[in-house]
Each structure stands twice: as structure tokens, then as C-alpha cells.
């Protein structure tokens, strides 16, 4: 991905939206800005975690290893790694895009990147809360279904992206 062009344009569009909001309703703009600050400090530790994970992967994982484990010849182990990674990844989904980009550049296939993102619907720290609200049967069925559909979804994504 190039640093300029798309990414900066995207940020510029969002900043323009903020300027419009400030002109339209300054109090609302202040509330949104306050929320942004709050959110930023909440996700900052996750950003640090992603940075550390990425640095360690850059240090120890060679592209050949990633290709072998998560590439076109990835077996059940590769799927397990992607899904467990997805389940364990904390914080907002977008914080993990840079890591996936890095892994994809090293040879990770699209199906496993998609499985990682789909499996994120399972949140281990929140499971007690889910059991409290919806019960054991619900929670167990939901988690198993999400894992199965992460594999199915991953395969479909791979096929559709490939067919471009």
C-alpha cells in the first residue's frame, strides 16, 4: 500500500466531514471530538500491542514460514492459527488490518485473512456476559457456528477474490 494517495484522501474526506459538522453544530462537534479522544486512549494500548506483535513477527517469521503455514498450501493448522488469532485479537477490527496486510505481503492467503476477521465475532472476555444475557445453549451454538462459518466464509472469499 502506498502511504499517500488513498489513505490521505480518506483522512481528508473524514476531516472535511468534521469541518462541516463544526459549522453545522459546534456543540455536537465538540461531543464527537470528546468521544474521539476517549476512543483514542482506549485503543492506544491495542495499537501498541499490534505494533509489538508485528515487530516480533517481522523479527522471527520469515516470508517462507508464513507462506508454508498460512499460504496456498496451508492445512488445518493454518486455519486453526488464523481462527485462534482472530478469537484472541482484542480491540476494534480495524486495528488489526496492518498486521494482516503484513502477513498477506509475506504470503498469507485471503481465505485465512477472512477467517481471522470472521472469527473475531467470538470475544472470550465477553463470553460470561453473553452467557448471562442469552444462556449456555445460545453461547455454545453461536461460538461453534461462528467458527464453522469462518472456514466456509474464508473459502468463499478466497474463491470470489481469485475470480476477479
Amino acid at each position: 500500500m502506498r502511504p499517500t494517495s488513498g489513505s490521505v484522501k480518506f483522512l481528508a474526506v473524514v476531516v472535511a466531514l468534521y469541518i462541516l459538522l463544526a459549522l453545522y453544530d459546534f456543540v455536537l462537534f465538540q461531543n464527537v471530538l470528546y468521544k474521539f479522544t476517549e476512543l483514542f486512549f482506549k485503543v492506544a494500548p491495542i495499537l501498541v500491542l499490534v505494533f509489538v506483535v508485528m515487530s516480533l513477527l517481522n523479527l522471527y517469521l520469515q516470508p517462507g514460514t508464513v507462506k508454508k503455514m498460512l499460504g496456498t498450501r496451508a492445512g488445518p493448522k493454518g486455519w486453526a492459527v488464523a481462527m485462534i488469532g482472530g478469537v484472541l485479537s482484542a480491540g476494534p477490527i480495524y486495528m488489526w488490518y496492518p498486521l494482516l496486510e503484513d502477513l498477506k505481503e509475506k504470503g498469507m492467503k485471503d481465505s485465512l485473512a477472512a477467517a481471522f476477521l470472521c472469527a473475531r465475532a467470538i470475544k472470550i472476555p465477553l463470553l460470561p456476559m453473553m452467557i448471562y444475557y442469552f444462556g449456555w445453549t445460545f453461547t455454545a451454538t453461536l461460538c461453534i457456528s461462528i467458527l464453522i462459518f469462518s472456514v466456509i466464509g474464508g473459502i468463499i472469499v478466497e474463491q470470489l477474490v481469485k475470480s476477479e
Binding site: M1, V13, V32, F36, F51, E101, D102
Partner: peptide, 26 residues
């Protein structure tokens, strides 16, 4: 290498954070 990769994606992550904050309030 990680820093470079992060610097490239930072504008996007900031943009998403700004968008999410807006949706949360609106």
C-alpha cells in the same frame, strides 16, 4: 519495517477512529 508499515496505515486508522466517534455520538 513495522514503523514504516504503521506510518502508512496511520491516516486510515485515524480516519476510521474519527468516523466511528461520529457514528457513536450521532
Amino acid at each position: 519495517r513495522t514503523g514504516k508499515s504503521f506510518a502508512q496505515t496511520m491516516p486510515i486508522l485515524f480516519g476510521v477512529l474519527l468516523l466511528v466517534s461520529m457514528v457513536l455520538v450521532l
